[in-house]
Simulated assay, not measured.
Amino acid sequence: MKDQPDDTKDQPDDASNRDTIGSGGFVSRLRSLDRGRVGLYLALLAMVGFYLTPIETGLVTSLKTNQAVIETAPYAPPGPSGFTLEKWQTAIDQLLRGMGNSMLYAVPATAISAFFGSLAAYGLTVADWSKRYKAPLLALFVAGIFIPYQAVLVPLSQFWGQYVQLGQNLGFVWALGIDNDYAGIIELVTTHVAYGIPICTILFRSYYKTLSTEMIESARLDGASLRRVYRRIVLPLSTPMFAVVLIYQFTQIWNDLLFTLVLVATESSPAAPVVLILAGLGTGMEGTDFPLRMAGAFFTALPTLAVYIAFGEEFAEGVTT
């Protein structure tokens, strides 16, 4: 019986394989990368650094003492002697009341405007009625988006202050021990709902136009009413767009200062929202306390960040549809 040929002589051993992979494998992979892709990644990293630098600067500033702000560069972290959390504690103590007041109007105004915007968009897309009426109504919704806040400040102030007068007409509510300054919270909710419905309607309408018309027509043929079609079919399918609208609306309402200044007026008010208190935080005759203002700004932004995190996946799905 003949001996089997020894093939191991032609095969490199494991040690030589490891040497080859270790010495040239990484370099060969680098050479095989597309230069265009490498340039794209470098450009993206540069953009990330460019946009994150202000955030990093504000964050490290909020952790510095006033003396450390003077002695160090804005983007440089504080040394052991310049580090403090006192500014954050002060900011939280002063802004916590305003945070609760902002939640009182931002959450209901966001939810109500999103819901009514969904209903209006459903009527403009799915409901079967004459197009000659739909077009003028749609034009009104589009026009409502472009009305600037500054154009309605005077009539808005007169409407709430001279005609509605919630502070006087809701006396039975204030008799329960609630400060009548909270009438401004009700005014903010109503105002933001009125301003939010047009943009919410347009966003929902663009989404509803992508829904399957065959599915809705089948439900109508089976005897489902418009209300039932909306409740059982359209509304469950609207989750991604609700995420988009809720994030957009909540951010706009939470950060709004103009209507707050008109309807609440002073930061000393028991109903003062957080943006109104933040506007005067860290300012005084002795100058501006930049670490305190930075800590207050980051603390104020936490609810909007939480909303983005909570609805992030649905937001991405809604944007891509």
Results as ranks from 00 to 15, higher is better:
Gln4Thr: 07
Pro5Met: 08
Asn17Gln: 08
Arg18Asn: 10
Gly24His: 14
Leu30Arg: 03
Arg35Ile: 07
Gly36Asn: 02
Val38Cys: 07
Val38Asp: 01
Gly39Asn: 05
Leu44Ala: 06
Leu44Ser: 11
Ala46Asp: 02
Tyr51Thr: 09
Leu52Ile: 04
Thr57Glu: 06
Gly58Ile: 07
Gln67Val: 14
Ala68Asp: 02
Ile70Gln: 04
Tyr75Val: 04
Pro77Cys: 00
Phe83Val: 05
Lys87Gly: 11
Leu96Phe: 05
Arg97Ser: 10
Val107Thr: 01
Pro108Leu: 01
Pro108Val: 01
Ala109Gln: 12
Ala114Leu: 10
Ala120Tyr: 02
Ser130Met: 07
Arg132Glu: 12
Leu137Met: 02
Leu140Met: 12
Ile145His: 02
Pro148His: 13
Pro148Ile: 13
Trp160Glu: 03
Gln162Phe: 08
Gln165Asp: 09
Gln165Met: 08
Gly167Leu: 03
Gln168Arg: 13
Gly171Trp: 03
Gly171Asn: 15
Gly177Asn: 11
Asp181Gln: 07
Tyr182Phe: 15
Thr190Pro: 00
Tyr195His: 09
Cys200Asp: 07
Ser206Val: 12
Leu221Trp: 15
Ala224Trp: 05
Ser225Arg: 10
Arg228Asp: 04
Arg228Leu: 13
Val229His: 03
Ile233Gln: 03
Leu235Thr: 05
Met241His: 03
Leu246Thr: 09
Ile247Met: 05
Ile253Asp: 04
Trp254Gly: 09
Leu263Ser: 05
Ala265Thr: 08
Pro273Arg: 11
Val274Asp: 11
Val275Ala: 12
Thr283Ser: 06
Met285Gln: 11
Gly287Ser: 06
Pro291Gly: 14
Leu292Glu: 04
Ala297Tyr: 02
Pro303Gln: 08
Ile309Lys: 03
Ala310Asn: 00
Glu313Asp: 14
Phe315His: 00
Ala316His: 06
Val319Ile: 13
Thr320Asp: 06
Thr321Gln: 04
